[in-house]
Amino acid sequence: MKKSKTPYFFIAPTIILLSVFSILPIVVALIISFTDINLTGLADYSQINFIGFDNYKEVIKDPIFLKSILNTLFYVIFGVPFVIILSLAVALLINFGNARIFKAFRVIFYMPSITNVVAVAVVWSYLYNPQLGLFNYLLKLVHLPSVPWLQDPIMAKISLIALALWRAIGVNMIIFLAAIQGIPKTYYEAAQLDGANGWKQLTKITIPLLRYAIFFVSITTMIGWLQFFEEPFVMTNGGPLDSTTSVALFIYHNGFQLSNFGYAAAGSFILFIAIIIITLVQFKFQNKNVDY
């Protein structure tokens, strides 16, 4: 423990990389959000002007930005509860089974979350295709009208949520399963002696004791949906008529397609602050509820 230089040698590469690609960028983002940097500015730094809060003032009036906020709220409000309920339900069902085969279901439900997002988008675009897609064909088989999965503004959002749900269940199901298996068996034995049925055991023991896991999943899921990006980016690129553009996609468009780096950085800081505030509110709400 005297060799004082060794630990620095071990941590140096990661500290340097994280400083350059995680910490420095925050500072750079803050600075450029007060400037008008674009492609000209990138080539010649003397062309960059300090413009104060203009980017922030402009972006909160930008109709596409406002639309992207509403879209993101739509994703969060419908996405978060569905992810929690479905992954918890799957975890409970898998945990209920005694047979060996139930373990295989863990693999099946987890698989979508390790699948490449572009491949997912390609396959689902085919499934959602209005003429050749499987979904509309199945609807036709049962004599239902076909659905404009990605063509209608509202339906497109729902279709993207369905796809994201499919990808999100796996990881959260595993977290819930781990938490369920951590509950001591004696609680259930005591409840059975008192004559509590399965439903009572679920609502009075399992769910309350899963409170920490549910809180963890809801925080991470919420942050994930606030940054919802890949699905609309590859599936719809924000269309039709910006109805699936999320805040994150708005930032990407302005930064890398329109090269308004300063403007996009201002948008990204608004998103960052929103994420911090929402997370803090959730923590506060949780602290009030803990009473055991």
Binding site: V20, F21, S22, L24, P25, I26, V28, A29, I32, I37, L42, I223, Q227, F229, V247, A248, I251, Y252, G255, F256, F261, A264, A265, S268, F269, L271, F272, I275
Partner: peptide, 14 residues
Amino acid sequence: MIPGQVTMIPVYLI
């Protein structure tokens, strides 16, 4: 805690 969207543009500039 830092969202990817915030660092994306500065990392590109760096």
